[in-house]
């Protein structure tokens, strides 16, 4: 029990630190968002009128006052769920922008991540179970080879072959032009069509880390004395592989998986940019390039909370899966 309380305390402390950093970092960056917005409105060459600038600042609700009072307002806003108005998508609020992008990323990347983990762990365990056999060579060498290919290259190759040459799938976007998001059969099947290529790209590269990690861990656990003793005890091979091999080898991967799920946002920038997918990753890229502080901050905050929550969950599950950790922490 103490173990879980401790983990929870640790979680809250890190969360506070992350929230504070998230407040400070964008303010330390050079550049003025109002200026950037004006530039966009008027074109780069036109001289900027200071009065206009002031008006835009008012409009955007740029925080005044010193850092401390800004920090205080910021904490208050977070607790009430107000992230302000987006600078670049004015007059939409940050919350609106994020909630329209979130489901796209969550479904595409969330599902592929889980599939990647499942596929990777299974393949890795299989390779370790059949160590030094042909199956092992194919899996290990194959994944090492695919792992050396750059993701964007693979993605572009997929687009070139299946979208442009064969024309089986659309070459980008989340849904066809003209339709708008709704829960109709037509729209869902359209969205699915659009998600196939990015999902395949993610599924090709996603499992590799899990395969190699799982195989190496399991080869090691199967070489331990307890696995040898299990063999001497006459346990069936499959049972040894599961209870004495995979069951122990999967532990470090559980943590890895939780972290991967948490940092989902950072990983989606590339895939969403390449496939022009309307998710959080593309939103983040646009927010950064437009100096859209409120949007950026909110996105960063979500990422951090995501990572921390995932870590917390990983610790908790780890506690259940590995009795050794519970004990070590309690002492």
């Amino acid at each position: 029990m103490l173990y879980f309380v401790r983990r929870a305390g640790f979680f809250l402390a890190t969360l506070w630190a992350a929230v504070t950093l998230n407040f400070l970092i964008p303010r330390l960056q050079p550049g003025d968002p109002a200026q950037a917005m004006l530039n966009r409105l008027q074109g780069e060459t036109t001289a900027v009128n200071p009065a206009q600038l002031e008006a835009i600042r008012k409009l955007l609700g740029t925080p005044d006052g010193n850092l401390l009072s800004q920090y205080w307002d910021y904490l208050g806003a977070i607790c009430t769920g107000h992230f302000g108005v987006s600078y670049s998508y004015f007059p939409y609020t940050v919350t609106a922008m994020i909630s329209s992008a979130l489901p796209w990323t969550l479904i595409l990347v969330g599902v592929t991540q889980m599939l990647s983990f499942a596929i990777g762990t299974l393949l890795g365990a299989w390779a370790a179970y059949r160590r030094n056999s042909r199956v092992d060579s194919v899996i290990t060498l194959g994944s090492t080879f695919v792992g050396t290919l750059p993701f964007f290259w693979l993605a572009l190759l997929l687009i070139f072959v299946f979208a442009i040459t064969l024309n089986w799938f659309p070459d980008g976007g989340g849904y066809g032009g003209g339709s708008s998001p709704s829960w109709t059969w037509l729209f869902v099947s359209d969205a699915f069509q659009h998600s196939v290529l990015p999902a395949v790209a993610l599924l090709i590269t996603g499992p590799i880390g899990w395969i190699i990690g799982m195989r190496n861990n399991m080869v090691q656990t199967l070489g331990e004395d307890y696995a040898r003793l299990a063999r001497a005890k006459g346990l069936p091979r499959r049972r040894i592989a599961l209870t004495y091999g995979a069951r122990i080898a999967i532990l470090p991967n559980v943590t890895g998986f939780a972290i991967a799920l948490g940092s989902l946002l950072g990983g989606t920038v590339l895939v969403e940019t390449i496939f022009n997918y309307p998710g959080l990753g593309r939103l983040l890229l646009e927010a950064v390039s437009n100096k859209d502080y409120p949007l950026m901050q909110a996105l960063f905050l979500f990422t951090t909370i995501g990572v921390l929550t995932a870590n917390f969950l990983a610790d908790v599950t780890y506690g259940f899966l590995d009795p050794r950790v519970r004990r070590a922490e309690a002492v």
């Binding site: 040898r228 003793l229 063999r231 001497a232 005890k233 590995d322």
Partner: peptide, 24 residues
């Protein structure tokens, strides 16, 4: 061999630290 193992022929290994499965 499995039917022979442990029924007729068992063993105790050297490293007492490591010959039991840690998670069960």
């Amino acid at each position: 061999l499995r039917s022979l193992r442990w029924v007729d022929l068992s063993t105790v290994f050297q490293s007492s630290m490591n010959s039991l499965n840690p998670v069960i």
